[in-house]
Nucleic acid binder design. Structure first.
Lengths: 300, 300
DNA sequence: TTGTGCTATCAAGAATTCTAATGAGGCTCT
DNA sequence: AGAGCCTCATTAGAATTCTTGATAGCACAA
C-alpha cells in the first residue's frame, strides 16, 4: 500500500526535478525521498523517473501517475478543510506572504478585520519579494502569497487577484502635479529609483521605459520600500510605484502621485499557492479580505 | 496529517456501523480502529461518529467527510491501476466470486481464454451464494463477485451485468417438451426443487409462484447444484434454473429445458465490488470475458 | 585526475502503529 | 437486581516503519 507521504515524495521529485531539491522542500533527507520513490516504483512495478546525471525526469507512465496522485493529495486536504468548515468558529493558522508594496497600506486594514472577526485564527505574515515568497510557498512554509504576475511555475496554482496601476512618485519639488496623469516620454530626463534586478517589477518597468522611449538621466536600484519613499520625498529623484502603496499620500503634501499614462503601466497581482494543497478556509477568508482591501485602494 | 490507513478505518466504521465489525473487515483490532478514528477526529477537531450502545452513526459532518475520503481512497487505487496499465503484460491476482449457477457452464470458457491470453495473471475463484460472496467482497477478500440482483448494500458498487431467463428443468419422464415455452399455471401440480431460504433466487421464485397462482404439489429445498440436476434427471421432480446453466443440456436427452413463459421469469445478474476500491485492470478484463460468455449463453 | 553534481544503499536509532488486555457503560434476559 | 453480552475507550509494550547520516557509485566537466 502506497502512503500519502510516499505520494508527496513522488510529487515533490516530479515538480523539483531532483531528489535532492525534493528533500529540501519536504524537510526530509535525500535518502528518505529516494527510498520512498523506490518503494512506490517497486510496488507499481514501473519506473516513474528517468535518472540522469543532472536530475530526474518523469517517464510517460510517471507523468500519468503524478497527475493522478496530485488529485489524491489535494482531495485529502480538501476533505479536512471541508470537514472543518462545519465547525462553529474559524480557527487555525494562516501563513501569508505579501510583497512590500501591499504591506504599506493594504495589509493593516485586512489584518484588523480578520483579527477582530476571527479571533481564533492566528496569522503569520511574511513580507518579501516574489522569489523568496515563491520558494516559501513551494516549501509550504506559506499557505499562499500575493506577488506580481510572472511566468508561472510547476507545482503552483497561480490565479489573478487584482490589477493596479503604476504611478510616478516624487517629492514636493519634483514638479509633478498631484493626481494628474503624466506621459513619461514628455518629461525631462528622469532621476529614477527602481527596484533591483531580481524584482519582477524591475523588468516590466525597464520594458516600459525602452519601448516608450522614456528619457532617463540616472538610475538608482533600491529594494527598501520605506527608504525609497523617504528618499523621493526629500530629493528631486522620482520612483515608480503601484497605486496600492500610495493611499497614505493621497493628500499630496509630502509626495506627489501622478498616474503613468499614454499608455498606462499596469501591475497585475496574482495569488500563488501549492498545487497539491488547497487553501485552508481561514486562508481563503483572509485572502478575501486582502483582495477587498486592494480593490478598494485601486479604485481611489 | 491524516494517513490513508486512518481514512480506511473511518470508511470501514462508517460502512459497517461499528468499530468491531470495521476491525474484522480491515483485519485489524478494534483497538487500532478506535485509535485511528480518534486521531482523525482529533486532528479534524470534529466528531465524526455518534456513539450509541449498539454501534455508531455518522454525524452530518462525518458523512460529508466520509464521502470525500471515499474519493480519495478510490483515487489512490485508481492511480495504481492506471499506472500498471502502462506495463506490457497484464499481471497480478484476480479474486472473483461467482454463484454456482454461473460456475457450471459460463466459467470454464472465460477462465480458459483468460489463462491463455494473460498467463501472468493468477486467478482465484470462490464459488458461493450471494450472502457469502457479498461478505467476502466487503472484506476485500474478493475483487468482485457476480450475484443475483438484490437490494443493494452500503460500501458496495452494484452494476448490472446481464439478464437471464429462468427455465423449468425436468427429466425425460417429466412430460416437458424440450425448448418449448411453458406456462407454469397450466401444468399439473409441481413437485419442485428450489434453493433454500437464504438464497436470493428462492424469494423471487416464490413470488412468481404465488402471484401467478402456480399449483405446487411438493417443495424440496436443496442448495446443491449438481445434486439438483441429477435428482430431476432421475425422478419426476422439476426445478427452476436460469438459462446460463443449461448449456450442457442443449440436446435435451438427459434433461428437458422449457423456458418459463406468460410471463417470463427473469434473473438479473449484477457485479459487485467494494466502493472504496476500483477494479484492477486484470479483474476488469476477466469480468469482461465472463460477461461475454454469459451473454453468449443467454442468447442460445 | 580531480572535483562536483547527482542518486542508491545500508544500518541504527527514532517514531509510529499495532496488539492484547482491561475498563466502563448500556442493554436484555432471567 | 444481577449475570451475560454487547458496545467503544484506554493503556503499555511489541512490532513495524520511517528517518537519518555516512558512504558508495556514476556521469560529466575542468
Amino acid at each position: 500500500m502506497i502512503s500519502l507521504r510516499q505520494m508527496r515524495s513522488v510529487v515533490a521529485v516530479a515538480e523539483e526535478g531532483s531528489f535532492t531539491r525534493a528533500a529540501v522542500r519536504e524537510n526530509a533527507t535525500q535518502s528518505g525521498i529516494s527510498q520512498h520513490v523506490a518503494t512506490v516504483e517497486e510496488s507499481l512495478g514501473i519506473r516513474l523517473f528517468e535518472r540522469t546525471s543532472e536530475g530526474v525526469l518523469l517517464t510517460p507512465a510517471g507523468d500519468r501517475y503524478y497527475k493522478k496522485i496530485l488529485d489524491v493529495l489535494r482531495g485529502s486536504e480538501e476533505a479536512i478543510i471541508d470537514a472543518q468548515s462545519s465547525r462553529e468558529t474559524l480557527s487555525g493558522p494562516v501563513r501569508a506572504g505579501i510583497m512590500p508594496v501591499l504591506a504599506r497600506a493594504a495589509l493593516a486594514p485586512a489584518l484588523e478585520r480578520m483579527a477582530c472577526q476571527h479571533s481564533d485564527v492566528s496569522i503569520h505574515i511574511m513580507e518579501g519579494y516574489s522569489g523568496a515568497l515563491t520558494d516559501s510557498v513551494k516549501a509550504e512554509e506559506l499557505d499562499f502569497a500575493v506577488v506580481p504576475a510572472f511566468g508561472g511555475a510547476v507545482g503552483l496554482n497561480v490565479s489573478h487577484l487584482a490589477r493596479d496601476r503604476e504611478m510616478l512618485v516624487g517629492g514636493a519639488q519634483s514638479g509633478l502635479v498631484h493626481g494628474k496623469p503624466v506621459r513619461l516620454a514628455e518629461l525631462p530626463p528622469l532621476k529614477l529609483v527602481t527596484p533591483s534586478r531580481n524584482n519582477i517589477r524591475k523588468a516590466r518597468i525597464e520594458d516600459y521605459l525602452t519601448t516608450h522611449s522614456v528619457c532617463v538621466d540616472r538610475v538608482m536600484e533600491m529594494d527598501a520600500m520605506f527608504g525609497t519613499l523617504d528618499f523621493v520625498a526629500r530629493t528631486d529623484w522620482v520612483t515608480i510605484l503601484p497605486g496600492v502603496i500610495c493611499a497614505p499620500d493621497l493628500d499630496g503634501t509630502v509626495r506627489r502621485i501622478a498616474p503613468i499614462d499614454q499608455p498606462p503601466l499596469y501591475l497585475d497581482l496574482v495569488q500563488i499557492e501549492p498545487a497539491r494543497r488547497p487553501l485552508s478556509l481561514q486562508a481563503r477568508v483572509f485572502l478575501e479580505e486582502l483582495k477587498k482591501e486592494v480593490e478598494e485602494l485601486v479604485a481611489t
